[in-house]
Design a binder for these strands. Structure first.
Lengths: 351, 351
DNA sequence: TTGAAAGCGCTAACAA
DNA sequence: TTGTTAGCGCTTTCAA
């Protein structure tokens, strides 16, 4: 059984009606210019096109226009399960790119070398734009800017722009640390611990503490290794405080997996959330709704940021200039910091 | 600042070396046929191509070959957060399609109408194949088969094929219910509850019970509504048994969200997993590793199934015939059914 | 050993 | 009011 698609072309329609191809093209595109066609003929053409289910051939279109109508998406992740990058950021990118009739090539990478490999081969002659998203990785800056200089339209989706000249869809990183800290302060926490990875988020934690007139003490800041956002680091943080015999009454963790590891370890040791301490993470990962208690988190707007990145890329492609954008993170308060324990599943995708 | 890509074409190379375009094409493709080129010239051509970083123009290729080198992916989901469909199935599809240099158009849908909408507009003239994955939906069968009859290469990734003539990458559904039930029996459970949605999975549960010589009792089967795989149904199941004053010593839930809702509700009521009962879900969702206790689950091989679907699609595209495939599910045993509570994060993507 | 020409489907400038 | 033609980049058949 052979499956060749019986595609209808302009030529087919033209032949059927015994008119020229270009006329059909003009009519179907409503690009008549100085051309005037009789209404009658125009109607006939449209009718046949509809009947025979005519669709433009996108390859021909691309060849002519010089654009490929497709964009490459490279997501830098850490390999954590359940990251919202895929579920939300990629989804935003996809939905918006569909609106623009752009196809996608998606790639995930963890190492710089993997990124380079794809860049070498995949971009030129295949796509007319590149979106790099996920965990910021300073090492990549140079490569990315080389591609940009080559003329490849380029947008990054990382928290903080890697370079002033690189169009980026960012997030207020200070606020990412500040917002949840303020929240715990408002909830009445007095000794707020911090599971730290990124410097600027920690700065946000300190800012909130200072402004509330609270002491910033080293013993309440557990510093993880670079890019150590994983569950096991959260476990380690909890053990650290348990071993030290000092349990904070609130913890701001810089990721949900950190928060989960911490919370579960405390719980297993008989230290209950939210009775004994409040916990809040960052990412608003899908699983936050399913933990016990459900986990409060900072939402980094992955979904709308993905969408905006595509829009910016389209702008650049048209030769317009774009500005870097910084989103303000929002709080999703659940049971782990005093909210309701009913998982609120209404927001399948966070605004 | 304008961003037109300075693409190098065969023509550019031909001009530079003052040879014909076709010769360059032949040399670079190693498709010389009866043509014999001097080694010297061939080397020169290759050298220039490399220097100028020549890449084939994919649109031109597509136009010529009649293929668009892109496939459409439609994922039918329920809107649960954290579903492994996106993280695993889509990822498998992406990785394999990159191997084949295929671009993708991705769409998510929940309603039949959304599916139809995309089908109407997106397929013809845009893609040369369609993969439909996710929750099986009998209603779609007719539409899908119409598209297939139209000549669109088509592969579904649903548990049970919607039709014998529809190439499908499935899963042994009976085993999906049977495997976890057997496991709980081996763990010593005597009264095994079942949170049921799909009939054939329930049949698997019953099969395992019967073969072990255990009673199948209605009171241990909590039937959810159609397609009710969500957290709240799991909560309801737990409440049902609590209200009835009968707590099973093991529960096979037909999804991870069901299992989480059930487990968390029991836990909140003082009924502990795994001390008082064992729990196991289906899907091996990312969050299984992060719950307390970590949640055992049936892995439905979403990742490799996604990969295989692309391979099958490529076969069909080449006119070959393909067979429906049924994968055997596997067990991922975690703390909720007696395994270790350390989240095993080694397997970022389940085999 | 190399080149010319046709054609994939489409659009736009230019003719008629 | 409608048609002709050239050309986007590539491969392939046929000719030199």
């Amino acid at each position: 059984m052979s499956y060749t698609l019986p595609t209808v072309s302009l030529k087919d329609i033209a032949t059927e009606l015994d008119v020229s191809i270009s006329l059909v093209s003009k009519v179907l595109n409503n690009r008549l210019g100085n051309t005037r066609v009789s209404d009658e003929l125009a109607e006939k053409i449209k009718k046949v096109a509809k009947e025979r289910n005519y669709r433009k051939n996108s390859s021909a279109l691309s060849l002519r226009s010089g654009f490929h109508n497709s964009i490459s998406v490279m997501i830098h992740r850490h390999g954590e399960r359940g990251s919202p990058l895929v579920d939300y950021m990629v989804r935003g990118i996809f939905e918006k790119s569909n609106e623009y009739d752009q196809k996608l090539m998606l790639g995930f990478f963890e190492q710089k070398s993997e990124f380079l490999e794809v860049c070498e081969s995949a971009h030129r002659g295949l796509v007319d734009g590149l979106i790099v998203g996920g965990v910021p990785h300073r090492e990549l800056c140079e490569v990315i800017m080389d591609l940009q200089k080559d003329g490849l339209p380029m947008v990054t989706i990382v928290e903080e722009a890697l370079h002033p000249d690189l169009p980026n869809v960012g997030v207020n990183v200070i606020a990412t640390g500040e917002l949840p800290t303020k929240h715990l302060i408002e909830q009445g926490c007095k000794t707020i611990g911090h599971v730290a990875v990124m410097e600027n988020r920690t700065a946000g934690y300190k800012k909130a503490m200072k402004e509330a007139g609270m002491q910033i003490e080293d013993k309440w800041i557990y510093q993880c290794g670079e890019s150590s956002f994983g569950y096991q680091s959260g476990v380690a943080a909890a053990k650290h405080w348990i071993d030290a015999g000092q349990i904070p009454d609130g913890v701001v963790a810089q990721s949900d997996t950190l928060a989960a590891g911490l919370m579960n370890t405390f719980t297993a040791a008989g230290i209950k959330t939210p009775d004994d301490l409040l916990v809040i993470g960052v990412d608003d990962s899908p699983f936050c709704a399913y933990s016990l208690p459900s986990l409060s988190s900072v939402n980094q707007l992955n979904y709308p940021r993905g969408k905006l990145a595509v829009e910016m890329l389209m702008q650049i492609r048209e030769g317009k200039s774009v500005e870097q954008k910084v989103f303000e993170p929002t709080l999703k308060i659940r049971a782990s910091s005093g909210g309701s324990n009913e998982p609120d599943l209404s927001d399948d995708i966070p605004a």
